[in-house]
């Protein structure tokens, strides 16, 4: 017999917030995984909405390429508001 598939669980604590990864669990299909996510990860009112995603469906960036993926943004300081000088007299902007 094969192993019951693994699912990643995302929970939104309440409307207005984003779903956040909370952990994983096993379920033979999406409905069972969703049920299990409810019973495992929302026993103390943690959630108002649940996503379950097959773990195998996730494509992740490779930490070995993290430098080339993420370092090039470091010197683009003009993307940040503090890069620009505006006299205090103008007021909050």
């Amino acid at each position: 017999m094969g192993e019951t598939p693994l699912w990643e669980v995302f929970i939104r604590p309440r409307n207005g917030l984003a779903h956040k990864h909370v952990g994983s669990l096993h379920g033979a299909d999406a409905e069972l995984a969703l049920s299990a996510a409810r019973d495992v990860y929302t026993r103390r009112g943690e959630g108002g909405s649940i996503w379950v995603v097959p773990s195998a469906a996730i494509t992740a960036s490779d930490p070995a390429h993290a430098d080339e993926m993420f370092d090039p943004t470091a010197d683009k300081i003009y993307r940040h508001p503090t890069f620009y000088d505006i006299p205090d007299d103008v007021g909050h902007m």
């Binding site: 019951t4 669990l25 096993h26 379920g27 069972l32 049920s35 299990a36 019973d39 495992v40 026993r43």
Partner: peptide, 10 residues
């Protein structure tokens, strides 16, 4: 299965 160990007590 462990998932049901949590579901049944609920």
């Amino acid at each position: 299965m462990l998932e049901e160990d949590l579901a049944l007590p609920n």
